[in-house]
Amino acid sequence: MLSIRLENLSHTYQRGTPVEKTALHNITLLIEPGMFLGIAGRSGSGKTTLLQHLNGLLKPTSGCITFNGSPMDGHGMRDLRRRVGLVFQHPENQLFEETVCRDIAFGLSGTGLSPAEIDIRVRGALEAVGLGETFLNRSPFELSGGEKRRVAIAGVIVTDPSVLVLDEPTAGLDPRGRRELLDHIVALRRERGMTVVLATHDMEQMARHAEQVMVLENGSSALFGTARDVFRDVGTLERVGLEAPRITILMSKLKKVFPEIDDGIVTVDAAVEELKRLHRRQGLRWRDHDERCARGSVCCREFGSPPVGPQDEDPDGDGIYDACISC
């Protein structure tokens, strides 16, 4: 298990030259084992630069990054890169071997594993991205775009990293390709307990999978929190050039009419549930004209019009509130 801590990390490209450009500015972030972290932001907001720090490809120009509490040193760099697998944007462009099998195994060269062990790992990685053994001896150059991309990802997870970092993994894929690829990543995380860091500007994807989300704007963190909290802030998202999922926008508009709507809805599933609940609630009435709930206890009278709350559902389906929040 590996936890990565970034403290006030900044990165400036070509420092000291006229073309110097600050790509990251004072990023503080703790990536804990098992986390599914989303990094959102427009192109050029610093996502890629941030990701390349996570496996030591780039070094902060100020601030620091530590792995399990110790700063990285040149010594364990290759080891670190095996523990933090980084999938680049358009990873299919890095395939080079004659066969899929050899390409995937490239990440294991120099590890001292036996050929048998390597074979097991390669097959495991290929299976994890949903490709069968028939692919092993094919040339990576004759595969379709989506297949190539999966092979490239297999080439990264073959080292069994604790942290899997993906930079726009679904860019350019069709809806099915996008969905399947993400499903494989989710499954990997579940089965191997991987930490996943996913950079994307596809907010629907982010909403469906990420637990924590950091939104970057011009290299600084504009928002950070749970997916619910981040997507609630439609205004900030718009300002940094991102769109909250359509469903979130719809529900927040509806909330102006029905204030009791939960405002952290980021998926269609959640919206359907919420609307059904609301519909049920709209149809419910109080037991009598004093507007008491079905339990009709003293508290309802004391409150006057009883407050509604989480318990105000109607399990017996008779159209009458079974209990208000205070009963």
Binding site: P175, R176, E204, R246, I247, L250, V268, A271
Partner: peptide, 11 residues
Amino acid sequence: MGLDIPQVAEL
């Protein structure tokens, strides 16, 4: 057919 539909339509 492996396609999505817009979220509003899906809802």
